[in-house]
Amino acid sequence: MHTTHSPGFKASLTASLTAASIGALVLFGGLAPASAATDDAQLSVFHGVPGLTVDVYVNNKLTIDNFKPGDMAGPLALAAGTYTVAITASDAADASKPAIGPVDLKLEAGMNYTAVAHLGADAKPTATLFTNDTSTIAAGSGRLVVRHVAAAPAVDVLANGAVAISNLSNPKESVLVIPAGTISAVVAATGTTAPVIGPADVKVAEGVDTIVYAWGSLADKNLAVAVQTVSGMNSDPNGIPAGEAGLVATNRPADQTPLWLGGIAVLVLFGLGSATFLGLRRARR
C-alpha cells in the first residue's frame, strides 16, 4: 500500500476550524432554538466526498447551498420525525431532477447523530448515519471514536506505538474509553505499522467524545482527517450539556481533483432539513 498524507498533517490536525468549516457553521448557527427541547434529535453533518459540491433540498426547499468537502455543519436541534430530502448538483435550479432521492430520514427523539457523506471501500459515494454515544463517561476519562469513511482497505489504529484498534473497515467505527490526555495516533493498513495517515497528536478530553474521521481516497492520494467533538458526558453534573459539537480540525488536501460529477452524490446530507430552519434558509442568488 502506498503511504500518502498531506504536508503539515500534524499541525493541521491540531489547528482550529478551517475557513470553510466556519462558513458552514455560521450558515447553521442559530437555526436551532437557544434552548432545544429535550425530545429533539441533535444532528451534525460531515461532508467527506472529495471534489464534490452539492445543494440539499428538504421538502422541495433549498436548505443548504454549495456544501463543500471537508465541511461540518451543526449540531441542529430537530423535532423527532421524518424529513424528505433530495440531493442535486450545486448549480441545479430546483429539486425537480435530483441525482439522489428523494429519500426519507427518520430521526428519533433525544438521540445525537452525525450524518457522513463519504466514499465507500469501492470508491463510490455513499452515506452513513452514525449515532453518537452520549452516555456518562467516568471521571478522568474521555471517549475516543474512530470512524473509517475513506476509500481504503481495512486499517489498524496505533496509539503511542501500540495497536489500539484492529482491522477497522469502511464504514465501521470503533470506540475506546481511555484516560484523558494526548495520544500519538497512526492509521496503518491492517497488520502493518507504516502510516497511511499520521502520526498525529490527538487530544482526548475528559467527558468528551473525540471522533476521528479518516476520509478521502488512498488511490487518489487525498486521504484526510477530521476531528469532531461532542461534549457533556462528564460524571460531574456541572458538565456541558450533551449535543454540543463541532469540527475541531481538518486535514484537507491542498489539491483535490474533482472525482465525481455533481450528479453523483451524497445520500446523507439529507438530515439537514427541518421545519426549524426551512423558514430561515437564505435565498438563492
Results as ranks from 00 to 15, higher is better:
residue 271 G to D: 12
residue 5 H to D: 15
residue 60 N to T: 11
residue 223 L to P: 12
residue 139 A to M: 13
residue 234 N to K: 00
residue 170 N to R: 10
residue 139 A to L: 12
residue 285 R to A: 13
residue 273 G to W: 00
residue 207 G to N: 08
residue 283 A to K: 05
residue 35 S to G: 01
residue 39 D to Y: 09
residue 37 A to R: 07
residue 50 P to I: 00
residue 118 H to R: 09
residue 46 F to T: 00
residue 119 L to K: 10
residue 196 V to N: 02
residue 69 P to T: 05
residue 228 Q to V: 10
residue 262 G to D: 15
residue 110 G to L: 12
residue 214 A to H: 03
residue 267 L to K: 00
residue 215 W to P: 01
residue 248 V to T: 08
residue 116 V to E: 14
residue 44 S to M: 13
residue 22 I to H: 01
residue 177 V to G: 05
residue 279 G to F: 01
residue 144 L to F: 15
residue 263 G to T: 15
residue 62 L to Y: 06
residue 149 V to H: 14
residue 62 L to M: 07
residue 63 T to H: 06
residue 49 V to K: 00
residue 267 L to T: 04
residue 189 A to R: 14
residue 156 D to Y: 03
residue 215 W to M: 06
residue 234 N to V: 00
residue 67 F to H: 04
residue 258 P to F: 02
residue 272 L to V: 01
residue 198 G to C: 03
residue 126 T to R: 10
residue 19 A to R: 13
residue 183 I to A: 00
residue 222 N to T: 02
residue 50 P to S: 06
residue 70 G to I: 07
residue 199 P to R: 04
residue 249 A to I: 08
residue 118 H to T: 10
residue 1 M to Y: 07
residue 203 K to I: 12
residue 72 M to P: 03
residue 163 V to Q: 13
residue 111 M to E: 14
residue 193 T to W: 09
residue 93 A to S: 10
residue 116 V to F: 11
residue 128 T to V: 11
residue 98 P to D: 03
residue 199 P to Q: 05
residue 146 V to F: 15
residue 173 E to D: 15
residue 108 E to D: 14
residue 51 G to H: 08
residue 196 V to K: 02
residue 250 T to E: 02
residue 253 P to R: 00
residue 115 A to E: 09
residue 255 D to F: 04
residue 4 T to I: 07
residue 1 M to E: 15
residue 273 G to Y: 01
residue 279 G to E: 09
